[in-house]
Amino acid sequence: MKHLTIIVLLYLFATAGYAADLTCHWPTNQILNSIVPIESGENSHASGVVVSSNLVITAAHVLEDYYNTAVEINNAMYLASVLLVDKESDIALLSVSTENLYPIPLSKNDLYESQEVWAAGYPRAQSLHTSSGNFVSKKAEAIHTSAGIDSGESGGGLLSCEQGEFVLAGMLRGYGAYRTDQGLVRLEDYSISVAASDIRFTLDLSKLSHNEF
């Protein structure tokens, strides 16, 4: 009986350690460096996500000038080529040198109730902002979460944790708001994102997807 007890305790410690390794606490610099600032035209500042070598996704609605869209990679601005714009899904694909930045893999799973998520982007052309929240619902193929964002973070990354690794659960599209007599009021802790499944579908349509997606 004593030997059995020791074996059971060792198993419990081993499985507890394994479970701990499958949790995510905060996005690493490697992940956050792959969320990049974007400028389009003279007045549009937004965010993007590196999803493959030399391929960045962003929100279609932020592209003010298709021929004058630049992406900041490792503190340098590079002119990007607009490969595809899908206004219905609000996804745009940009070709630009991503140098050594890590492509964030797309999630292959749906978010579950209250799952923790992280939203990362560049609000109002300022430094990177990251917030945490939880999955709320999926309505009309859009992901609703309690991770707050601001203007300029559209096109940024909605991150989740799968098997201890950060993945791209979606692309930030906009913040939640409610209407008053004075106009729209932004909700501090609410954001809406395009789902990873829609991103993958767009990549497939563009014939730019690879097995790792």
Score class of each variant (00 low, 15 high):
83 L>H: 09
50 V>C: 08
76 A>Y: 13
178 Y>R: 10
154 S>E: 13
191 S>Y: 06
27 P>G: 04
184 L>W: 13
208 L>Y: 03
188 E>T: 14
4 L>Y: 12
37 P>Y: 04
7 I>L: 15
155 G>T: 03
41 G>W: 03
96 V>L: 02
27 P>Y: 00
192 I>Q: 04
28 T>W: 07
160 S>N: 03
18 Y>H: 15
179 R>G: 03
152 G>F: 05
140 A>P: 06
117 V>L: 04
140 A>S: 15
106 L>R: 05
26 W>D: 11
80 A>L: 03
54 N>R: 10
64 E>L: 12
42 E>C: 08
89 S>C: 09
114 S>G: 08
51 V>N: 00
180 T>Q: 09
24 C>N: 05
103 P>N: 09
188 E>K: 10
50 V>S: 02
180 T>D: 09
85 V>W: 00
195 A>H: 03
176 G>I: 05
132 S>T: 14
144 H>C: 05
118 W>H: 01
83 L>K: 15
26 W>H: 15
11 Y>L: 15
185 V>G: 01
112 Y>L: 15
164 G>E: 08
173 R>Q: 06
135 F>Q: 01
185 V>P: 01
61 H>C: 03
82 V>Q: 11
139 K>A: 10
88 E>H: 14
138 K>P: 04
25 H>R: 14
53 S>F: 08
136 V>S: 05
